[in-house]
Write a protein that binds this DNA or RNA. Structure first.
Length: 253
DNA sequence: AAGATCAGCAACCGCCTGACC
DNA sequence: TGGTCAGGCGGTTGCTGATCT
């Protein structure tokens, strides 16, 4: 179904499946030396029999030096819940606000843990309500991992990244968009009014986050406590390039 | 001890979008 | 202006180790 990606076509005899340490090493060292210009050319240049998409995925989800890995902290968990409530399944946007975590990691975490947790919570709070029918799959969560979040929760909003970033730099403009958002009610805890007073500023985020992508719990808590940052300017390094370009610039410039 | 089930994770698939020609 | 291509994203699947019976 759909067009076959040229770089992934059978003609090129690309490898699939798990990456070997040697492949990881080749990809990582190639990117460390030359950076990323064109993913589709990287396999050839790095001597890998993979398609460019596969290389990109491996890099983004596993090899990136700023990735934290390991268990999610309670703060991160809370933040993911808050962000998912506001952004829905926009994992990349959620990941952009969780330094050191990839969208895939967050998505997996959500599908495996949080959704189940929330369901249980809902079920226990809704007396007499029945649990959804069992999954058609043996594994993959209570709803079969369909990937759709509860419609009652999701209210599609224009995410900050959908707006041109330079124009976003005006905090007052951000506040305005918050107020104007038709789905403003989905703001977690409904504390949009506190936006100006508590939202982490780019400056404060820069000081709270390390180059390795780690943020202290206080910082994460601040974000959880005040979801208003969702509609403001939150960039890890404060230069509005976002977390990815943050480390890219440091590692390979 | 062995099979069944669960949970977590890695990676693929298919679609969409923007850039380029 | 329409077609092509590459990058990016969300959804889904498959594998593997852990836990349960």
């Amino acid at each position: 179904m759909g067009r076959v990606h040229p770089c992934c076509s059978e003609e090129k005899k690309v490898r699939k499946g798990l990456w070997s340490p040697e492949e990881d090493e080749r990809l990582a060292s190639h990117i460390a030396r030359f950076g990323v210009s064109c993913w589709s050319s990287i396999p050839e240049l790095a001597g890998l029999q993979r398609c460019g998409k596969s290389c990109r995925l491996r890099w983004m989800n596993y090899l990136r030096p700023d990735l934290k890995r390991g268990r999610f902290s309670q703060q991160e968990e809370d933040l993911i819940i808050a962000l998912h409530k506001a952004l829905g399944n926009s994992w990349s946007q959620i990941a952009a606000r969780l330094p050191g975590r990839s969208d895939n990691e967050i998505k997996n975490f959500w599908n495996a843990r949080l959704r189940k947790k929330l369901r249980r919570k809902e079920a226990s709070s809704t007396a007499g309500s029945k649990e959804p029918a069992a999954s058609h799959r043996r594994r993959g969560g209570e709803d079969g991992g369909s990937g759709t979040h509860p419609p009652a929760v999701f209210n599609p909003l224009p995410a900050p990244e959908d707006r041109p970033r330079p124009a976003d730099s005006d905090p007052s403009a951000a506040a305005g968009s918050t107020a104007a958002a038709p789905g403003g009610s989905v703001l977690v805890a409904g504390n949009a009014a506190a936006a100006d007073s508590v939202a982490p500023s780019p400056t404060s985020t820069a000081s709270a986050c390390t180059e390795a992508g780690g943020c202290d719990d206080g910082f994460l808590k601040a974000m959880v406590d005040d979801a208003s940052f969702l509609f403001g300017d939150f960039y890890l390094d404060g230069n509005q390039d976002g977390p990815i370009s943050f480390w890219e610039g440091h590692a390979f410039s």
